[in-house]
């Protein structure tokens, strides 16, 4: 068998393989790339504060909130920080913060698509109600509930 014949046979054998590879490459080129899912994350700094009646006193750790706390209600003048908890959540995830009357649940719903970016989240008060909030990073809410003769205040600061 001559060298020419061997070469022809080799080419014949390779042609289908090359065509197959070309077809695979073409299909791959037309298939849209699988989008990489963006995992959004937000964090929520939660401070649980107890307010009672009596001589005015504000926990030094609450200095940044002092003015607002003092103007909250005329009868409650003593404020103590019970705990600080930071929840870092991905989209859909839920975090729990223990309150004296049960668990406060925060669920991160995602970022809003508005011009001003907001962190959408759902807050469930133990045994009471739930609210869906859209808060710009840095925004803060004070949730207040009365338990007996004291107030429990949940200061939540939203971060990105």
């Amino acid at each position: 068998m001559s060298a020419m014949m061997c070469k022809k046979q080799l080419v014949r054998a390779l042609v289908p393989a090359v065509l197959l590879l070309a077809a695979v490459a073409e299909v791959a080129a037309q298939t849209p790339p699988v989008p990489t899912q963006v995992v959004e994350r937000a964090s929520f700094e939660v401070r649980v504060i107890e307010a009672t009646k009596g001589a005015p006193m504000v926990d030094p750790k609450l200095a940044d909130l002092e003015r607002e706390l003092r103007s909250l209600h005329r009868d409650y003048a003593r404020f103590a920080l019970l705990k600080t908890d930071t929840q870092s959540l991905t989209t859909g995830a839920r975090g729990a913060v223990r309150l004296p009357n049960g668990d406060l649940i925060i669920q991160f719903l995602g970022l809003s698509a508005d011009k001003v970016q907001r962190v959408r989240h759902r807050v469930e008060m133990p045994g009471m109600n739930a609210t869906v909030r859209a808060v710009a990073p840095g925004g803060r809410t004070l949730d207040v509930l009365q338990l007996g003769d004291r107030l429990v205040i949940v200061a939540t600061t939203v971060k990105r």
Partner: peptide, 23 residues
């Protein structure tokens, strides 16, 4: 819609589900 809105009004309450009591 303008710039700076977040500073002026950082919190929106979008929905409320009240099972008891009030808000």
């Amino acid at each position: 819609q303008g710039d700076g809105c977040a500073d002026e009004n950082p919190v929106f309450i979008e929905e409320m589900d009240i099972e008891s009591g009030g808000v």
